[in-house]
């Protein structure tokens, strides 16, 4: 079943001049159609200004389309009332964890969402506990969020989202500000939630090596969707990626270089182990 259906989406950011007339319109998303199945882990790649974030913000009604329609679990996102039913279905995690944390303790922060939904106390406490458990942050329940590492803060934000029981989590460069271990923590948490809870994940990033385990990668360029396929397929098309101002993970590039130099390696090698094993077979 398709949980997200985007049909011919266009989004223009309009600028008004001093008289209030339309001066310039920037077409950030230019006729994109995309469907995401329930339970999929989908990654969106694209250069700065390619329209990735703009696209994602239509899924939970942070933006409304200039043209086209977006459906989320069958709801027409732009028209559905009340809007919080849409936002509860799909939550968004942003780049900077410090901008998303408001509680003085981890527990309080995670409770903020469901509390606003009017969940009764007993149920609320249970949800907080379970969500922290799922995000791997149960041990920090009473800590002050300020003292956590970047990766831990993002996991608190994820727990806060889980407490609202969304079906979809949209992540807009959630790892951009994290150190390598923090990046890994966040990525592993999301894969686990995807596998075990069946949560649909839409993951936006500029780090190519983070998306090799996604079910599918879509690539955006200048507002258009230009590639759409499994990681192995997308990352074998190195030249096309470069035209999109992107690249492939280091391992994939190394394998491609070795192949060019005459070693009989497959296309689209995605992991260190894969490359090592392929080289061993050549020995």
């Amino acid at each position: 079943m398709n949980i997200i259906e985007i049909l011919n989406l266009v989004h223009e950011y309009r600028e008004l001049d001093e008289e209030g007339n339309e001066a310039e319109a920037l077409r950030a998303v230019d006729g994109v159609s995309l469907t995401v199945e329930e339970g999929e882990f989908i990654a969106i790649l694209g250069h700065n200004g390619s329209g990735k974030s703009t696209l994602a913000k239509h899924v939970n009604a942070l933006l409304t389309p200039t043209e086209g329609t977006v459906y989320l679990s069958g709801m027409n996102v732009a028209e559905h009332k009340p809007i919080w039913e849409v936002r509860r279905e799909a939550g968004m995690i942003f780049q900077n964890p410090d901008n998303q944390i408001i509680g003085t303790s981890v527990e309080e922060d995670v409770a903020f969402g469901p509390e606003n939904m009017g969940i009764p106390t007993e149920e609320l406490l249970k949800r907080v506990e379970v969500s922290l458990e799922k995000a791997g942050m149960a041990a920090y329940r009473l800590h002050s969020p300020n003292k956590l590492s970047g990766g831990q803060k993002q996991r608190v934000a994820i727990a806060g989202m889980l407490a609202m029981r969304p079906k979809v989590i949209l992540m807009d460069e959630p790892t951009a500000m994290l150190d390598p271990v923090g990046r890994k923590e966040v990525l592993e948490t999301m894969h686990e939630l995807n596998r075990q809870e069946g949560i649909t994940v839409v993951f936006i990033t500029h780090y190519m090596e983070e998306v090799v385990d996604a079910d599918r990668i879509v690539v955006m360029k200048d507002g258009k969707l230009v590639m759409n396929g499994a990681p192995r397929e997308v990352f074998s098309r190195l030249e096309e990626l470069e035209e999109c101002h992107l690249t492939a993970p280091e391992v994939t590039r190394l394998a491609a270089e070795l192949k060019k130099a005459g070693l009989d390696l497959p296309d689209g090698v995605l992991s260190v182990d894969e490359l090592v094993n392929a080289l061993c077979r050549l020995k």
């Binding site: 590492s149 190394l254 182990d273 090592v276 080289l279």
Partner: peptide, 23 residues
């Protein structure tokens, strides 16, 4: 480096893997 929250570049791990495999 991993112990302290960092890592090495991906290709360093490839070389380690090859070494372990007897190269």
């Amino acid at each position: 480096l991993e112990e302290i929250g960092l890592s090495a570049p991906e290709v360093t791990y490839v070389m380690e893997g090859l070494r372990k495999a007897g190269f």
